[in-house]
Design a binder for these strands. Structure first.
Lengths: 203, 203
DNA sequence: AGATTTGTCAACCATTTGGTTAAACCGTTT
DNA sequence: AAACGGTTTAACCAAATGGTTGACAAATCT
């Protein structure tokens, strides 16, 4: 029992991820999680004590997944210029597979979970990444525009994450169906990549 | 009584805006709105019938404010290149004054309010704006990169809105206090503006 | 097999929450 | 001043919701 997680527990956990990420802490219902997991509501409390406790676990794992999973990419052995499209490509795929995750994380952080940010040490992970060092390095050599590297990273993720966050509105305004949405996102990847790289190099 | 709105009604409305925008439909409590307005809870139902009805009004006015207020700027008599920084400047100011509004609107649209999008006819308003026409025009003359104008507009608002949506996380990662946050946003305005204009002109 | 622990469930409980009611308040009309 | 209409409030109600309990089943141990 040490590492192999109980089957019921995992079913609850997976169901909770689905429901919490879609509805948020306030909108999620314990009964709905139980139904989604196909088990009795009492089991939720048996395994996780309370909604608060269950939420905390779901939130933390979501937060780590959201920010932690790019880190390997940032630290790979290639140039920053090669990394940019790879980061974008990665996030586009990630967001397609986890459409509710970023919104959920950002939402709950706004509400009350700001303290969680310290638990996952994003600051250092990001700031000290090879990607950031490479940017600073090339800035020092006057090869690219001198600018706060956080702004560059923020530009990348803004450009690709925001369209997913605002997906219903974007689809509506640009009159996209599911197929043309994918096309739109493919186009978007190149644009964001081009904008960032262009901006750094042309100055 | 035809146009002057009842004082109590306005107080409720203002309180509801505050609470709904901060907590969302699911997280908002009628009692909290009443407290915020400093009146008895029954008054909410007296003036607005139900939470659903009250929410609908708040949401619609928020949606219109979010997308409608930028339209005049898009249709002004200046070049697209002059408009870009003005749009960004406008949104930065707007977001500072209404920090919870965009998140609220995007959140509720995701949840259930997608149908509202049709009521406010953003598609046409945006697509047919002078700004969009100017872009298409210059694209036709090969003066700027040929690209879906919606992508350009999306790049602008992504770049400036997303940092506000993710404000707690951005502040944490970039280690900003309230003062340096303002500095960061000022820097950001120029970056987004520069990126978009650069990208369109350099190709 | 019998005892003991662990897991599961239906029924129940207490609180919260959106909503209602009936009485009171108050300015206006007659 | 009495009657009237819109406004406001405290008390109340019913449903929803997070959580608990006690019985029972299913493994696990001896």
């Amino acid at each position: 029992m040490p590492e192999t997680v109980n089957d019921t527990e995992k079913q609850i956990f997976d169901a909770a991820i689905k429901v919490f990420q879609r509805k948020g802490m306030a909108g999620a219902r314990m009964q709905e999680i139980a139904d989604e997991a196909g088990i009795n509501k009492s089991m939720l409390h048996y395994y996780f004590r309370s909604k608060e406790k269950l939420f905390r676990q779901i939130f933390l794992i979501s937060l780590k997944k959201f920010i932690g999973s790019v880190v390997p990419l940032l630290n790979e052995q290639n140039t920053w210029e090669q990394k940019v499209p790879l980061i974008i490509e990665y996030y586009a795929k990630f967001l397609t597979e986890n459409p509710d995750l970023p919104f959920f994380v950002l939402s709950e952080i706004r509400n009350n979970a700001e303290e969680f940010l310290s638990e996952v040490k994003i600051e250092d992970i990001l700031i000290n990444s090879v990607f950031m060092e490479q940017l600073k390095n090339d800035m020092g050599k006057e090869k690219i525009r001198r600018i706060n590297p956080v702004q560059i990273f923020l530009s990348i993720i803004s450009g690709i994450i925001f369209p997913f966050i605002a997906k219903p509105m974007v689809k509506h305004v640009a009159k996209l169906d599911d197929n043309s949405w994918n096309e739109f996102i493919n186009e978007r990847k190149d644009i964001v990549s081009g904008m960032v790289i262009n901006y750094l190099k042309q100055f």
